[in-house]
Computed example of a mutant assay.
Amino acid sequence: MKEYHKLIKKILKNGELKDNRTNIKTISIFGHQAKYNLKDEFPLLTTKKLHLKSVLHELLWFLKGDTNIKYLVDNNVRIWNEWAYENFTKTNEYNNETIKEFVDKVKTDTSFAKKFGNLGPIYGKQWRDFNGVDQVKNLIEDIKKNPFSRRLIISAWNPKEVKDMALPPCHTFIQFYVTKDGFLDCQLYQRSGDVFLGIPFNIASYALLTYIIAKLTNLKPGTFVHTIGDAHIYENHIPQVKLQIKRKPRKLPKLVIRGEWSSIEDINYDDFVIENYNPHPHIKGDVAV
C-alpha cells in the first residue's frame, strides 16, 4: 500500500485548499491513478486497521440491489447512517432524535426503517436496475461470452436519478479487462475521494468486487486500477494522515473465498476469509456529511 502513502504525501505537498459543500475545507489534487496487485495479495490498508466487516457487508448490500440502511444497521455497519439521518432531520417527523436514537429505531421498527432508512436510487439500484437494466448480471454474462470486449462496464451515475440520491455516487464508473492468460483487471473512476476515511475502504471494496466477478467467470483476480478525480484530505484529518505516513506498511494479507457459487445470489458473508492481516491500530476520524 505504498501507493496510498504516495497519494497522501502528494496532496500534502501539492494540494489546493478549497471550500466545499460540507463547510470543512479540503486540500485536494485532481487526476490521480494508482495500481494494486491482486494476484498474490489483498490491498487492505495496514497503517491503520480497517473494518473489513463493513467493506464486505456494504458490497453485498450493493450486489443485492438494496438501498435501505436496514440491512447494514442489522449487521452493525454504520457507514451510511449519517446520510439517512440527515434526510430524516429534514422531515416533519423529526423530533430532535439523536443519530443513535434514529439508528435504534431503524433497527427495531420495520415501518420506520422502510420510510426513513432508504437513501434513494444509490449504487445498488443502479448496479441492478439502471432504468431496467441489471448491469451486474449483464457484465458477468458478457465476460463469459466475449471476454475481450471493450464494453465490460458498470455505471453508477444515472443523470435522471442523481437528484433523488442521498449522496450522488463518488465511485461512478467501473470497467473490467480480461487478459490472455486469464486474469481479470478492474479500473474504477472515482469522481471524488476522501483520502483518509473513504479511499482505503474503496480500494478494498473494488478489489473484493474483482475477486467476486473473477470467481463467477472462472478467471483469476489481476490488477485493480484506481483513478480518482478530486482526491482530497479534509482539514480535520491532517493530523491523522500525518500520523499514518509515519507508520511503516506491513505485509499485505490474503483473501480466501470458501463458497461455491453459480450466481451472485449464492454469495454469503461467511464465504470470505482474510488471512494474516496484521495492521497498525485504528485511527479515528469524523466523516464530513
Rank of each mutant, 00 (worst) to 15 (best):
K10T: 07
R21W: 09
K160D: 11
Y211A: 05
P253I: 10
H232G: 01
N37Y: 13
P168K: 08
G182N: 14
L38I: 09
L44E: 11
N95T: 07
K284P: 00
L197K: 01
Q240E: 12
K53G: 04
K125R: 13
N68E: 12
T26I: 10
G31D: 06
T22H: 06
T217W: 05
Q190A: 06
V162L: 12
D286F: 14
E41Q: 14
E260D: 15
W157T: 00
T67Q: 05
K49S: 05
A207D: 11
V287A: 12
K144P: 06
Y206C: 08
K18Y: 04
I245F: 13
R78L: 03
I245H: 03
T108D: 11
Q240W: 13
Y234W: 06
I29C: 08
P239D: 14
D286Q: 14
K137Y: 09
L184Y: 13
P43I: 10
V162H: 00
D19R: 12
T26E: 01
L197R: 01
D142E: 15
M165T: 04
L17Q: 00
K284L: 07
K125M: 14
N75H: 10
Y71R: 05
E235S: 06
I264H: 03
K254W: 09
E235K: 03
N81Q: 08
A231V: 02
K163W: 01
I257V: 11
I213V: 15
T210H: 12
S111C: 11
N95G: 03
R247P: 01
Y85T: 03
P253Y: 12
L243E: 15
F148E: 11
V195R: 04
I79Q: 00
E86F: 06
I154T: 01
N146P: 02
N96R: 08
K105Q: 10
P200D: 12
G15D: 06
N68Y: 11
T172Y: 01
V77W: 02
K242C: 01
D109C: 09
D194L: 12
D194F: 11
I69F: 10
L152P: 04
R150F: 09
T47Y: 11
D142M: 14
F102W: 09
A214I: 12
I257G: 03
G198N: 13
N218K: 14
K220N: 13
V273E: 15
L208K: 02
P121L: 14
E3T: 05
W61A: 02
K242I: 08
N95Q: 15
Q244T: 04
C186I: 11
E3Q: 12
F30D: 03
V133Y: 14
K90A: 03
G65Q: 04
V73I: 15
H280R: 03
D134A: 06
S262A: 00
A34W: 09
F42K: 02
A214W: 09
K115V: 05
K145I: 10
E3S: 10
D270C: 00
Q126M: 12
I264W: 09
L139V: 05
L219I: 07
K220I: 04
E97K: 05
F116T: 11
E265N: 14
F42G: 02
A113C: 13
I143E: 04
A113W: 13
I233D: 02
N218F: 14
N14T: 06
T91S: 06
Y234K: 00
H32N: 10
E82S: 02
L243M: 12
A166V: 09
F88S: 04
I233N: 00
D185I: 02
L63A: 02
H237N: 04
K107M: 10
K220W: 04
A288H: 07
N96E: 15
V241Q: 02
H232S: 01
Y277D: 02
